[in-house]
Nucleic acid binder design. Structure first.
Lengths: 139, 139
DNA sequence: ATCTGTGCAAATAGTTTGCATCCTC
DNA sequence: GAGGATGCAAACTATTTGCACAGAT
């Protein structure tokens, strides 16, 4: 079952009705490998109102179907929560490009830290900032 | 040499003149162990214009004297960049409380990941989300 | 005296809300 | 037919910019 089918199903179960705006947002997210901002979604879906984009993203986030990614505080970006596809991000400080990566060793270490903490940790984020290959060879 | 002295000195070297607004912002940051938002600084320094708060934070960040901390995308928070005091944050998903922690093992692992990456990594952030002890016993 | 730093207020950017209408169930 | 879903526009919040003036060098 694809992520968009999963998402649609869960929205139904949660009592939401089917609507054109939400379907388009979900389809767009289905086609993206990494995070997209709300405004980019709005730009790419001219038929969908901005408010609907934000409302849909909020609903999807609350159902745990997408994750919010913070890469600099300016704007929020969102990406599919792909079960088993847990990953983190590197962001290029020059061009802003966002590149996903996974690392089991890093995950283990983060879980170890979480076990030893006072907090009951439920999720985590790692962000590496640096210069991407493309920008590195140029400058 | 205290952080505020260091900061003032470096601002001088960088060609900035001494001004009351910047001095107050620096003194406030000196007294904080962890991140503070721009609006909180503005609130606590009624004599300082909001624009000056943002301008000072921008200058300090560019000189590497403070670090921006993203804990949820809404607002940006800032804290002193204390040499040797590198740390990360846990944020309580219920009350928003921000608690710093350090972990050498985690740092090692992150550096290892950085070495193996295509990016030339210059900095990193780790954020653990969870329920703090105070909120955990209540709920 | 010069030129930077500052405060105020207006402008901007991202996000949220109110509401009339459309469409699903 | 009833009630949620949507688009538009206005409201709101955080941040940035323009500008006249005060203050540092």
């Amino acid at each position: 079952m694809s992520w968009s089918e999963e998402a649609t199903g869960r929205l139904n179960e949660a009592g939401f009705r089917a609507g054109a705006a939400r379907r388009q947002v979900i389809e767009l997210l289905e086609g993206e490998r990494c995070a997209v901002t709300a405004l980019e979604i709005d730009r790419r879906l001219p038929a969908v109102g901005r408010a609907s984009v934000y409302r849909t993203l909020e609903q999807l986030e609350q159902l745990g179907l997408i994750n919010r990614v913070d890469v600099g505080g300016e704007v929020a970006a969102f990406e599919r929560n792909d079960p088993g596809g847990h990953h983190h991000h590197m962001v290029c400080v020059r061009c802003g490009r966002l590149v996903p990566f996974e690392d089991p060793g890093l995950e283990r270490e983060i879980h170890r830290v979480g076990e030893g903490a006072d907090f009951e940790v439920v999720s985590h984020d790692v962000l590496l900032r640096g210069v991407c290959p493309r920008c590195g060879e140029a400058g």
